[in-house]
């Protein structure tokens, strides 16, 4: 609590200096404080009966359910199945989105051939496609993977295209003067120059990927996290439903964290002094 009083005692004392003076040390506990407080409040409300078990079970109850399902293998199996759908769908969508964007951005012909249909398809509502995908691909794994792939492709396509087209023309001239050739220009100037924007697209598309997966798994599934949640609903197991949601959230956070890690590694040059 001494930190709190220190903070409030000098609210305007050069705030910019503080993180630099103590990097990281102050921030982490502070950011963790409010979620922890909420968790405690939640547990208290459940324990005292203010919050009905049927509406929202206590954190402790959810934790024990998690342990139970983990031990029986139900949870790990469900995560495995969902993760597999997400990874395959993401890989297919990312390859298509980035590949088509490179094609469209690097040549006029490619742009005319690829961009108009992509812009048209982009206008289609992602979840409106579900009935069509079920008609086309049945109710197995394919429609779910296809939905994820479709959702992933567009943010990556748009951002990669914009990233490549946004590469500084002056740097392209440097490549010309240094006689890099077309392949060298793409390798040394164009693709690295587009990377920051591609990474933005990557984060956007990961968000879409999880969303598409969750929706697809809700519609019909005989395994996976969505199935686990739906099945639990039938038996009024709110704790399992909440657990499923928490797992989705955790998976989303983990993948976002991975991209941020990649970002930090790939974009060290932006940090300037840090990389020197």
């Amino acid at each position: 609590m001494s930190l709190l009083s220190l903070e409030s005692a000098r609210p305007r004392s050069r705030p910019a200096d503080r993180p630099a003076a103590r990097p990281g040390r102050l921030r982490v506990p502070w950011r963790a404080a409010s979620p922890l407080a909420l968790l405690v409040l939640w547990q208290l409300a459940s324990s005292t009966g203010v919050l009905a078990e049927r509406l929202l079970p206590a954190p402790a109850a959810i934790a024990s359910t998690a342990a139970e399902l983990f031990e029986s293998g139900v949870l790990t199996d469900a995560i495995g199945v969902s993760l597999q759908r997400a990874v395959i769908g993401f890989a297919v969508g990312a390859a298509a989105g980035i590949g088509l964007a490179v094609l469209a951005a690097l040549s006029r012909f490619g742009e005319h051939a690829v961009d108009p249909p992509m812009q048209m398809l982009r206008a289609l509502p992602l979840f409106g496609l579900i009935p069509l995908f079920i008609l086309w691909f049945g109710i197995g794994e394919t429609p779910k993977i296809a939905l994820v792939a479709f959702g992933v492709a567009f943010p990556l396509y748009l951002n990669t295209f914009a990233g490549i087209r946004g590469v500084d023309r002056k740097l392209a001239e440097v490549g010309q003067v240094l006689r890099l050739g077309r392949a060298g220009l793409i390798r040394h100037i164009v693709l690295p120059g587009a990377l920051p924007q591609v990474l933005v697209g990557l984060r956007q598309s990961l968000g879409v990927a999880w969303l598409a997966l969750i929706v697809a798994e809700q519609i019909n599934a005989s395994q996976g996290l969505g199935f686990m949640i739906n099945d639990a609903r039938e038996f009024l197991r709110t704790d399992v439903v909440v657990l499923g949601l928490l797992v989705y959230a955790a998976l989303g956070l983990i993948t976002d964290g991975i991209v941020r890690l990649v970002e930090r590694r790939a974009l060290t040059w932006r940090g300037g002094l840090l990389g020197a």
């Binding site: 002056k170 740097l171 001239e173 440097v174 490549g175 003067v177 240094l178 006689r179 890099l180 060298g184 040394h188 100037i189 690295p192 120059g193 990377l195 040059w269 932006r270 990389g275």
Partner: peptide
């Protein structure tokens, strides 16, 4: 061959200084 030093140095920001100098060097 022709070499150019531009008004803004136009170093490629995502290549380290030495790699910038070596860029496209045959």
């Amino acid at each position: 061959t022709v070499a150019v030093a531009f008004q803004e140095p136009r170093l490629v920001p995502w290549r380290r200084v030495r790699a910038n100098v070596a860029l496209g060097l045959d």
